[in-house]
Amino acid sequence: MSVQPVTRVWLRNKRRLLDVQAGLARRRFRRIRNTFYNSLWSDAAEAVGAELSRCPNGLVRIRKGQASTFVDHSDLMLDSAITLRLMANKAMTFDFMAETDLRTPAFAKFMLSTIEKAEAFLAGQNGPVVVKPADGTGGGRGVTTGIRTVQALHAAARHAAGFNQALMVEEQLVGASFRLVYFDGEFIDAVRRDSPIVVGDGTSSVSALVKAENERRLEGEEITALSPLILDQESRNTLAASGLTASHVPAADEEVRVKLAVNENGAAQNHVVRDDVHPSIIDAGARLVKSFGIRFAGLDVTASDISAPLGQGDTIFNEVNVNPGIHHHYLVANRDRTVDLAPLLLNRMFETGAGTITL
Rank of each mutant, 00 (worst) to 15 (best):
S113T: 14
S113M: 11
S113K: 15
S113Q: 15
S113F: 06
S113G: 15
I115N: 06
I115R: 08
I115A: 09
I115D: 04
I115M: 07
I115S: 12
I115H: 03
E116N: 15
E116R: 14
E116A: 12
E116I: 07
E116V: 13
E116Q: 14
E116M: 09
E116H: 15
E116T: 13
K117I: 14
K117A: 08
K117W: 04
A118L: 06
A118P: 07
A118V: 08
A118Y: 10
E119Q: 14
E119P: 03
A120L: 13
A120V: 06
A120G: 13
A120T: 11
A120D: 13
F121P: 02
F121K: 02
F121V: 03
F121L: 05
F121G: 01
L122H: 07
L122G: 08
L122Y: 08
L122I: 11
A123G: 07
A123Q: 09
A123N: 10
A123Y: 02
A123R: 10
G124I: 06
G124Q: 05
G124S: 15
G124F: 02
Q125G: 06
Q125W: 07
N126L: 13
N126V: 07
N126Y: 09
G127I: 11
G127E: 15
G127H: 15
G127F: 15
P128R: 08
P128W: 03
P128H: 01
P128V: 05
V129F: 05
V129H: 04
V129Q: 07
V130I: 15
V130T: 10
V130E: 06
V130W: 06
V131L: 12
V131F: 12
V131H: 10
K132G: 13
K132P: 10
K132Q: 11
P133D: 08
P133Q: 09
P133C: 03
A134R: 08
A134Q: 07
A134L: 12
D135L: 06
D135A: 02
D135Q: 02
D135P: 01
G136A: 14
G136E: 13
G136K: 14
G136F: 12
G136P: 09
G136V: 05
T137W: 04
T137F: 03
G138D: 12
G138E: 05
G138R: 09
G138M: 12
G138V: 03
G139L: 01
G139C: 06
G139K: 00
G139S: 14
G140W: 00
G140M: 00
G140K: 02
G140H: 08
G140E: 01
R141I: 09
R141A: 10
R141K: 08
R141Q: 00
R141S: 06
G142C: 01
G142L: 02
G142E: 00
V143C: 05
V143A: 05
T144V: 13
T144M: 04
T144K: 03
T144L: 01
T145G: 12
T145I: 00
T145A: 12
T145K: 02
T145N: 11
G146K: 00
G146S: 04
G146L: 03
G146R: 00
G146I: 00
I147H: 08
I147F: 11
I147A: 09
I147D: 07
I147M: 11
